[in-house]
C-alpha cells in the first residue's frame, strides 16, 4: 500500500526522518505509549517534549569551543573556568542548567581524557549529545586501562614524557578538556580560534586543530 508521508510533520513542524517509514519496533511502540500516558496524566505536554528536543538540538560542540577559545585568550577567564566550570560558563551567557562542570587543562606535560565507565555521562549541556563511540563498550572498557592505545586509534600519539590523566566520570561532575592552544595560532582572533576546537579535543581523544593544516 503506498503511503504519502508528506503530511506527517513532527510537532516542531519538521518532516519525520526516513526511519519513521520502517516497521515500528516494540520499543518504539513503548516510547509512544509512555509519551501519551504522560501527556494524559498531565505530567508533561507534547509541546514541552518538542521544546526539550529543540533545546537539546541547539546544543553542540560549538558552545564548548567558544568557552575554550575564550580561555585561550583570557587568562583571568581560564582561571575562573578551572576554579568553577559551571559558573564561568554561565558567565559567558551559556545556559548549562544544573550541570556541575570541571574543566581540565592540557599542558606541555599533561594530557587529560574523559570516559564514563559506569554509563555514558557526558557534558551534554555544553557539547550536545555524546558521539556513539563514547557510549560504546569498547571505549568505556579500554580507556581507563590502555589510554595510549585508545588515543592511537584516534590518531593521537603522545610522547612517553607526557602524563596521561584519565578521568572516570562516575558521579555528579561532568568534564571538559581545555586542549593546548596550537602553535601558529597566535595571530588568530577568538572566533577563528574556536574553529580549531573540535569535539574530540574537548573529550581528550583529539588535539586542537593546527591553523591552516
Amino acid at each position: 500500500m503506498p503511503h504519502d508521508h508528506h503530511d506527517h510533520l513532527s510537532p516542531s513542524g519538521h518532516p519525520y526522518r526516513k526511519d519513521d517509514d520502517t516497521p515500528i519496533s516494540y520499543w518504539q511502540s513503548m516510547e509512544i505509549a509512555v509519551r501519551e500516558l504522560l501527556v494524559e496524566k498531565e505530567i508533561t505536554t507534547f509541546e514541552e517534549i518538542s521544546a526539550q528536543i529543540e533545546k537539546m538540538d541547539a546544543r553542540s560542540p560549538a558552545i564548548g569551543a567558544a568557552v575554550v577559545a575564550r580561555a585561550w585568550i583570557d587568562p583571568e577567564f581560564k582561571a575562573r573556568l578551572l576554579e568553577n566550570g559551571s559558573t564561568a560558563t554561565a558567565d559567558l551567557g551559556f545556559d548549562v542548567g544544573p550541570m556541575h562542570l570541571i574543566a581540565l587543562e592540557n599542558t606541555a606535560d599533561t594530557h587529560n581524557i574523559v570516559v564514563c565507565t559506569l554509563c555514558s555521562c557526558y557534558p551534554r549541556n555544553l557539547l550536545g549529545l555524546p558521539p556513539d563511540w563514547y557510549k560504546s563498550r569498547a571505549y568505556r572498557s579500554r580507556t581507563v586501562k590502555e589510554p595510549r592505545k585508545v588515543l592511537s586509534e584516534f590518531g593521537v600519539t603522545l610522547p612517553q614524557s607526557t602524563q596521561i590523566r584519565v578521568h572516570d566520570s562516575t558521579a555528579d561532575m561532568r568534564y571538559v578538556v581545555i586542549p593546548a592552544r596550537p602553535i601558529g595560532s597566535e595571530a588568530l582572533d577568538e572566533a577563528e580560534l574556536a574553529k580549531l576546537v573540535t569535539r574530540d579535543s574537548m573529550i581528550g581523544t583529539g588535539l586542537a586543530l593546527t591553523p591552516n593544516a
Binding site: 581507563v144 586501562k145 589510554p147 595510549r148 592505545k149 590523566r165 572516570d168 566520570s169 562516575t170
Partner: peptide, 29 residues
Amino acid sequence: MLYRVRFSAAEIWGKAAEKPDDVIEAEVY
C-alpha cells in the same frame, strides 16, 4: 561527601599498566 580520588596506573593495573605513572581520577563517595 563526594571526592575525586587519584590513582596511579601502576596501582590499578600493576605490570599491565601502559605507563606506571599515568593517572586515573574518579569520583568516589
